[in-house]
Each structure stands twice: as C-alpha cells, then as structure tokens.
Amino acid sequence: MSSPGTTCKLCYWQPSGGTTVSSQVLVDLIKSIESMNGVRSGRWQVTASQHRPIRRDQAVQVECARELLGVAFSEAPNKYYFVLRPDHMVVEADSTIQSIMENLQVYRNHLTVVFEGFQYQLGDFHVKAGRAVIAHSENLRGIVLEVEYLPVSSLGKTHQLMQEFVDIWQEVAAQSMTGRIVHLEPNFGDYSLSDQYSWQHTALQYISLMVHFLSQRTN
C-alpha cells in the first residue's frame, strides 16, 4: 500500500490437491502478471513476527497475552504495527516502539516470517507477488499475492471491483497453472477498523496470512 487513498486485498496461491507450493509457482504467477501487461515497479518486503511473553518464574502463570504479533513494511519504514488476536486489537506506532519493547524485555521474538517479492503496475492497480519464508531459512511457507486499487479507499465501494480483478488474474493464471487464488479476509469490524482502508488493515491481513501459513505447517 503506497498512498493513503487505496484499498488492498491480500491473497495466497492454493495449489491443486496433492501438489505442493514451490518457487516455480511464483515464477509462473509473475509471468501471468507480465502477460497482463504489468510493469515491474520495484521490490517489496513485509516482516511479520510472533513474540511470546517472558516469565521470570516458569512455574508461575502470568496474566498477559500469550502471543504478540508485529508487522513492519518496507514501504512504511517509520511505522510498526502490533496485532493481538484474542483482544481483537491492531495498534499503530512508530518504528522506535521496537526499541522500547526490546528495552522492556517482556516479550521475546519467537518466529519471523518474511514476505518478499516484486511489485507491478497495471493502470490503477498495483499487484505484488512474493514468497513467504521463515526468517534466516529458505523454508518456503507459501506464495502471497496482493492487489491494491489506488484511487479509492472505501472497502465497500471497491469490494466487487477487486474481486473482478482477481477473477481475471485467476483466468490468466489457469492457462498455465493448476491451483487457485484464495482471498483470506479477516473481519475488520471485529478489530474496530472502519471502511476507510489504512495500513492497519494491511497489517491485519498479513498477520492473518502468517497465521494461516504457520497453521498449515503443523497440519
């Protein structure tokens, strides 16, 4: 998401039954974007981290969130976002909040997923395709696809338009690939996020996708 007046839809690639996701899937999806006359406009990266509370005495329970999730965007380097899923909360802060949390030493980084890839421009749409890997490894967890519509920031007004775009992309991809583009939409209302799209919405979408990819790993 590059400017305030936009909406963004986050998807992932679900291979057909029996097949696994691979780096070749990303190559093929990028080809499908280029075949729709998408123009490569740069690289992007999103870092999503899972933190766990630190207990001084392991035998004693602590009244606190069991899991703290954080997101940083290469496109918004001065901001940082937290999500608490059981509390239905998205928090926006400056990137210095990470140093504050390090100084407080109450939560410890448990796991980080890095989403990274290329961005393309197709008229009023920005499309991103990338891979999700566990940090410091080449352990591929999934393929992420993001569609951003630049002129309008109302989720309600762009819902159908975004879906139509994804459907077209799906048709193009289906010519050479087996699988489908799946949208994983969190319930923004549960998190008190309004119809006006913001970075907080994007943060929540990436967290939801991270949780989805990690849950697939354990299955």
Partner: peptide, 20 residues
C-alpha cells in the same frame, strides 16, 4: 538518560493492559 518515544494509536492503554 536513555529516553525512547514513539507515537501510538489511541488504544495504547488497552494494549499495554493486554500485555500484562
């Protein structure tokens, strides 16, 4: 002293309560 500051959204108090 080391002083670190960050702006934060208006749900900051509820957030820190949730963190314990």
């Amino acid at each position: 002293r080391s002083v670190l500051e960050s702006s934060i959204s208006s749900n900051a108090l509820r957030f820190f309560y949730a963190l314990g």
